[in-house]
Amino acid sequence: MSKKSNQNNLLSILTAVVMLIATYMIFFSLPIMRDESGEILDNSFNIFYFHLPIAITSYLAFFVVFVASILYLKKGTHNWDVLARSSAEVGSIFALLVLVTGSIWAKATWGWYWIWEPRLTTSLALFLVYLAYLLMRQAIEEPEKRARLSAVFGIIGFASVPLSFLSIRMWRTHHPLMFGSQGSGGGGLEGTSLQLTLLVNLIAFFLLFATILSYKVQNEKLQEIITEKKQALP
């Protein structure tokens, strides 16, 4: 256990350092953004450097749920279930943050908190699938059944997300876009310092995810030991 917590400590220190560098780069090292007409854009675009990495991490987290679910069904090893549920819980928070940062950005740019932009809407769908997954876990008491049934749902849910994206994109292109063609995408993200900032932020959020996940898994295991010890008491 102590070796494991040493690893966790190292990982969290590394995450903190990279996170600091990433945040510094966003606020202090980026050149001022100008649009086509040469006017200076306000700083609201900076949230993009949080938004995109968080979004990618939330998908990564669900991919971890997917893989862990398959492995649980194949191998039946309890640890895969611990990983799946830990990743789902951490991932759902990231998915929520995607919606929050997306909304803040939308408000600053267009004056609305919510836009039905395909990628943002897909994140909403992802978040709803996560919620359903976690609700399902709460609804089942028997540990073995809970692990098995939620693994099945983890697989179904993961498969539905890319299809959701395709259908939402189809839907949006059939409606007039209220805000012109400007999406949340990285159009115009040229220049190495911008790309570098994005990359460092991406790494920072991956590390953050890995750290939280690792602590979460450890917590879950400790909790199980406690439950077991409690049951052993008369």
Binding site: A132, L135, M136, A139, L149, F153, I156, G157, L166, S167
Partner: peptide, 21 residues
């Protein structure tokens, strides 16, 4: 599961977004 009538719509609706749209 104990709460099947409650659980089914909660699980089903997010998954069928790509059918409904």
């Amino acid at each position: 599961t104990r709460t099947r009538e409650l659980l089914l719509p909660i699980l089903l609706l997010p998954i069928i977004i790509p059918v409904i749209i």
